[in-house]
């Protein structure tokens, strides 16, 4: 077998794997919709997951957003003042936070924390036969395990994004005053003039989609875990890597569709 054939085979196998994963995740999503449509949501479990996955991610999202907002302000404020456009810094920081930084940072951080936790927990349940035990009891793992996590993340990620937006803009505003002497009213006026409520709302729509992606990818990878501890580790890694890649791609597509700067 020559090198070209091997290369083509590798491409073919990778494509097949990727399509299999897309199909599996789509099937899982369909099953989740079926559970929700039949009003079988386990509300108490969804609330518990919202606390574990959402509230538990609060501090890391806030810290990440705070320092990213401050870095953005640090990079832009001094130069903006030099060019005499210091009054635009507030708008730039708020615009970027609402549309991109808030949703993306929350999504990526939660993918790393909650996505990994979902894949690891479900993967451990698979290798210790707990998922098989659910089947044996006549219970659906999708209803018992996946849907509560999905609902929790779809609801919590927009809330985390609101916090990320506020903290990122607040951090940027504080640093702009410290290093470039842009006072708070100027910063706020600029933000209000350049950013509309629709920008924030679209950011929240994006973050809800990211929550859906993290829950589905994490659950899918967890539930198809094979082998022991090594299998759980691989599933966790795949869940985080896949979620982050899909979040970046989806972010581009949603920005293109939602912000509509195209013919």
């Amino acid at each position: 077998m020559n090198q070209q054939t091997r290369f083509l085979e590798t491409i073919g196998a990778s494509t097949e794997n990727a399509l299999e994963e897309v199909g599996g995740i789509a099937e899982l999503f369909r099953d989740c919709l079926g559970v929700l449509a039949s009003f079988q949501l386990r509300v108490a479990e969804a609330l518990a997951q919202a606390y574990t996955l959402g509230v538990g991610s609060f501090s890391i999202v806030v810290l990440t957003a705070l320092f990213t907002g401050m870095v953005f302000s640090l990079e832009s404020a001094l130069q903006a003042v030099q060019y005499g456009v210091g009054s635009l810094v507030g708008g730039a920081v708020a615009y970027t936070s609402a549309r991109e930084l808030g949703p993306m940072l929350s999504g990526v951080v939660v993918a790393g924390r909650a996505g990994a936790a979902i894949a690891a927990e479900l993967g451990s349940m698979v290798v210790t036969e707990q998922v098989e035990a659910l089947h044996a009891l006549g219970l659906s793992p999708v209803r018992m395990l996946v849907v509560p996590r999905l609902v929790a993340l779809v609801l919590m990620l927009p809330l985390l994004t609101v916090m990320a937006d506020v903290v990122s803009i607040g951090g940027g505003m504080w640093l702009a005053k410290q290093i470039a002497h842009i006072d708070y009213p100027t910063f706020i006026d600029s933000a209000r003039a350049n950013v509309h409520i629709a920008d924030f709302l679209r950011g929240l729509i994006k973050s809800a989609c990211f929550g859906l992606i993290i829950a589905l990818v994490g659950s899918y990878q967890g539930l198809r875990t094979r082998g022991g501890a090594a299998g759980v580790g691989s599933a966790t890694t795949r869940a985080v890597v896949t979620s982050i890649i899909v979040i970046f791609v989806t972010n581009f597509l949603l920005s293109y569709v939602l912000y509509g700067n195209h013919p």
Binding site: E129, Q130, G138
Partner: peptide, 19 residues
């Protein structure tokens, strides 16, 4: 099949209790 499984108890080798 779900109904059938509800009529059949299964005690797993390693218990498989929900931890």
């Amino acid at each position: 099949l779900v109904k059938l499984r509800q009529q059949i108890g299964f005690a797993f080798q390693f218990s498989a209790l929900f931890d």
